[in-house]
């Protein structure tokens, strides 16, 4: 659904712009999550990180109950969630960012570093899905 995607994207862009212009920080979720749990020393304060995470959950709940129920289909096996989660956690820390920090905030700033990161994780994600489909792990 491209239209909903575009509207959601505009809201995400507003969120990132608000944090930049209000607090002077990058809205990178992997960094904010690590900061909240004291797994990172840089970025926004730990209390602000918790406020952001609380807002993230509240925003999703508000849409779910006030606008329309969120549809989702999760991977069929916990192994995919566990291996996927471990790689996402380790990889985003090693690579200093994820879809929000590099993808949204970095690319819009024309950061060379973020273009390389984003192209790398999209290419690697495409390859992973293609190989998983070949192996019969489509879902």
């Amino acid at each position: 659904m491209p239209f909903e995607g575009l509207i959601g994207g505009l809201l995400i862009g507003l969120a990132a712009a608000l944090l930049l212009l209000g607090s002077g920080r990058i809205a990178g979720i992997s960094g904010i999550a690590a900061r909240a749990l004291s797994l990172s020393q840089s970025g926004i304060s730990a209390s602000s990180a918790w406020m952001f995470m609380g807002g993230l959950l509240l925003g999703a709940i508000a849409v779910h109950f006030l606008i329309s129920p969120i549809e989702s289909s999760f991977p069929p096996s916990n192994a995919l969630l566990i291996f996927g989660g471990l790689l996402v956690g380790f990889g985003t820390r090693l690579g200093s960012g994820c879809t929000s920090g590099h993808g949204v905030c970095g690319m819009s700033r024309f950061s060379r570093r973020s273009f390389v990161a984003t192209l790398t994780f999209i290419a690697s994600g495409i390859t992973t899905v293609a190989l998983a489909n070949e192996a019969g792990w489509a879902w």
């Binding site: 790689l87 590099h102 992973t128």
Partner: peptide, 18 residues
């Protein structure tokens, strides 16, 4: 390397951190 590892996890689980 970090971004490539993140992409593998993203493709396996269909989820990124947010």
């Amino acid at each position: 390397t970090g971004s490539a590892m993140f992409g593998i996890g993203w493709g396996l689980a269909g989820l990124c951190p947010g």
